[in-house]
Design a binder for these strands. Structure first.
Ligand SMILES: [Zn+2]
Ligand SMILES: [Zn+2]
Ligand SMILES: [Zn+2]
Ligand SMILES: [Zn+2]
Lengths: 163, 163
DNA sequence: AAAAATAATGAAATGATATAACATAACTAC
DNA sequence: GTAGTTATGTTATATCATTTCATTATTTTT
């Protein structure tokens, strides 16, 4: 939980992984004076179940199963809140969402998306020093947000494919 | 047209910019034995009109104005073709499309999106050597495609905002 | 504690983006 | 000119996301 890169594709105690993020999220919300209401917490919990990105309507369906209302805004509002507070990230390439695994830092995340097992690993993007940052600086472009995503096949799935 | 980074945000002869890309596109299609049919050429032409990304339905509307059919597949098929041949790129953050300005190279593009004037500048991403590439290599992740996009404000729009 | 302000949720409708499926037409190769 | 292939016509539907307005819950102010 402390700066492990691409945790999703590493062997790890996922139970601990979830609990840790969940606790951090709760602390963060208290610290910021915002409310981690039941829907919001449930959405985060759903996303923490695995490192697979979930679409808004998948989340919506699971919320419905759990007794929440089932109109689209229910999911989108919770997601908007979680994204705004850096607890969840949107994966543009997938139109889907993953729980952040380092919710404290005001980071610009980068993702590796396995197109076979659909797991998404989060790692930190070096916005300023990368090629993009350099070019931006050179032409006076002021970067506010970055989307850095790689699609490919994770090591585990590569091995599976061979056998 | 020759490796100028972030051309969209530089002063340039846009007429020449368009003609050059269009000619390259035509040559490329001939070389590859594929057909740049009227719809495909028209879509590319529409995208070349400016460095602003256009959504599929905007393109569809303009196609209709130009006398083409107006069902979604008309636009999506042409876009699929152009994207497959590297003549157009999809900007994930915007769900929209821009003409490529270096259509020859099998490059992985990076984009800078001005949230004020909506122009999109293309620059080259260094997939392998960047942080993403390094991390990928470290964990054995095989990258097939990258999405690298930065949203922010271009130099011109920053100046405008001040005055 | 009551009133006012703010934040969150309920509910219906619609907007925006993208694809599936199958029929027809146009090119290409032989 | 027939067969194979590629492209287009057309209808329908799938998928993703927001607008709008009413109601309820929570917090703040008095
Ligand atoms: Zn985990
Ligand atoms: Zn995998
Ligand atoms: Zn230009
Ligand atoms: Zn601008």
């Amino acid at each position: 939980m402390t700066g492990v890169p691409a945790q999703a594709f590493s062997k790890h105690d996922h139970g601990a992984c979830c609990r840790s993020v969940m606790n951090t999220a709760r602390r963060l919300c208290v610290a910021r004076g915002v409310r981690l209401t039941p829907v919001r917490e449930k959405v985060l919990e759903l996303l923490l179940e695995s490192h697979v990105a979930l679409g808004a309507y998948t989340i919506l369906a699971r919320l419905a199963d759990a007794g929440f209302r089932s109109q689209p805004p229910v999911a989108y509002r919770a997601l908007d809140f979680l994204v705004a507070h850096g607890l969840v990230h949107r994966v543009e390439k997938l139109n889907a969402y993953v729980a952040c695994n380092q919710p404290q830092a005001g980071h610009s995340p980068a993702f590796m998306i396995c197109s076979h097992c659909h797991q998404v690993a989060e790692t930190v993007g070096k916005t300023r020093s990368g090629v993009l940052g350099k070019t931006a600086q050179a032409i006076g472009f002021d970067i506010q947000h970055t989307v850095i995503e790689a699609e490919g096949v994770c090591a585990t799935c590569q091995k599976r494919a061979v056998s």
